[in-house]
Structures are given as C-alpha cells and as structure tokens.
Amino acid sequence: MSNISADHQKLDPDEALRSNMTRHLFRRISAHNSILIGGTVLGAIVFMALFASLLAPHDPFSQDLSKRLLPPFWMEEHNPKHILGTDNLGRDYLSRLIYGAQISLMIGVCTAIISGIIGSALGITAGYFGGRVDAVITFIITTRLSMPIVLVALAVVALVGGSLHAVILVLGFLLWDRYAVVMRSATQQARNMDYVSAARAIGCPTWRIVLSEIFPNVVNNLIVIATFEVAHAILLEASLSFLGLGVQPPDPSWGLMIAEGKEFLLFDPWIITIPGIALSILVLAVNMLGDGIRDVSAPENRN
C-alpha cells in the first residue's frame, strides 16, 4: 500500500508542481535572507564608519607605550578601558578597528565607482558599436585579463607611493574587466531590440540612444557586479597594505593592522585575529548582499 501511494505521489503533477514551487520559494526566501543579513551587517559597519568619531572610545592614533599589547576582554589581565586591547604602540585596538572600517569602505566604494565607470564605458561602447571598435576593446579586455592584478598593483603602487588615494586609483584602473565583459554582452542584447531601431529611425543622436535607451536596460547588471567588486577591492587593499605597499602607517587599515601584528603572532595571536575577522565579516556581508540581489533580480543566472 505504501508503495502504491509513493508511486502515486511521484506521478501526481500537482505534487510535482508544488515541490517545484517550494524549491523556488526557498530560493527566493534564501535570497531575501542573504540580502537581509548582508544588508544589516553592512549597514552596521557603515554606521560604525560614519560615526567613528562618536563611537570610538579613544583616539586611534594616540600612543601610550606604557600600555603596549594589552589583551582583549576575553583574556586575563585585560584593561576594561580597552575592550579589544591595545597594539604594540599602545593604541586602542577597538578605536583603530572602528576607524579602519572607514578605509575599507572608502576603498571598496570608490574603486567600484571608478572601475564601474571605466568598465561600463568600454563594455557599452564595444557592445553598441560592434565591429572594429568591439575587436579593439575585446583586445584591451583580453590584455588586462592576462595581467596578474596583485603583481601589477604592487608595481604601480611602488611607482606612485603607497597611500589611500594611490590604492583607490590603481585598483580602480585594474578592476574594470568584469564590468566591461558583462556590460558588453548586455548591450549587445539591448542593441538588437526594436526600440533602439525606433529611436534611430526618429533621428535620435547616438549618445542619447546609449544614455536613455540602452543604459537604463543594462544598469541592473551594474549593481550586482559593483557589490562583488567592492568586496574584491577591500580584499586587495588589505593584501596590498599587508605587503606594505598599500595604505601607509599610522592609518588604521585592517590589512596594515594584520601586517603590524604579524611579528607578535607568536605570543599574541589575537592581535591578527581581530582585524582578520572584521575583514572577513565585512567582505562576507557585501558578498551576501550581492548574491541576494543577483538571485532576486535574475534567479536563472544562479551559478
């Protein structure tokens, strides 16, 4: 009897439809969840960065060598005035962490904007004009993709000298490839729509077609890529700063904090654990937000 009912279930089209719907629903819900979780965490970090001067208990730059390397709250001998302890120069670690969020977010957002402008301009131009223009831009993209980002970024930052602005500019001019590739194919699709032909038949100038007919129809891709590139840029800045060729001391970049803590990792491993966890949480939140937006806006593009 149980066998028959099992077989019956398999064949029942309503049942199949329902299970398909629950699966779909599950995806929708998990996409919304990841937007919710990612967005909340990211929002909290943005809040922390914006109101750093109010939230930070101490000046992140003020040194006190008598209070070097105080341990954080979960360890013995911690100082209640310094919840996350102090670094090797006696600077309050929590305050540096809070101010460090400003650097990561600034780099992530500015880089994503610069590379977004470069990549979209190249991608839309290639996709819209096609032919030789497309061949040249595709070649530029291919060339860019055959250059290792970290190596080139290191060499260029060494050239201009490490600083917040240098890192933003260098990464901005390197991380545009994904925008270009996606915008190119999205534009190729939009370009073949009849509304573009209609606009051309009206006598609409090319710049106007691109801005008001094509761009609004490809812009949703931009938001998804931008979130991933924010995460990418934050990780790269941390790597560059860790290698000593990014943000320079005494600025509290999280990557730099890990680099400065590296020599103390033998006895005080917490000193690299804290900024590393902060970085991972920030990047994870941004990635979750991006995943969620992508799944909600185009569930079929999953994976």
């Binding site: 790597s239 990557g255 890990i258 690299i272 654990t273 590393g276 970085l279 991972s280 990047v283 995943d291």
Partner: peptide, 15 residues
C-alpha cells in the same frame, strides 16, 4: 565556499 571567499588569503595563511 561562499564564506571562504570572504577570508583574506594572507590572513587565512597566518591563522
């Protein structure tokens, strides 16, 4: 996999 992508390589190495 998603969570791991968020961890900086150098920090993962150090940990």
């Amino acid at each position: 996999a998603v969570a791991g992508q968020a961890i900086p390589t150098f920090w993962m190495g150090l940990m």
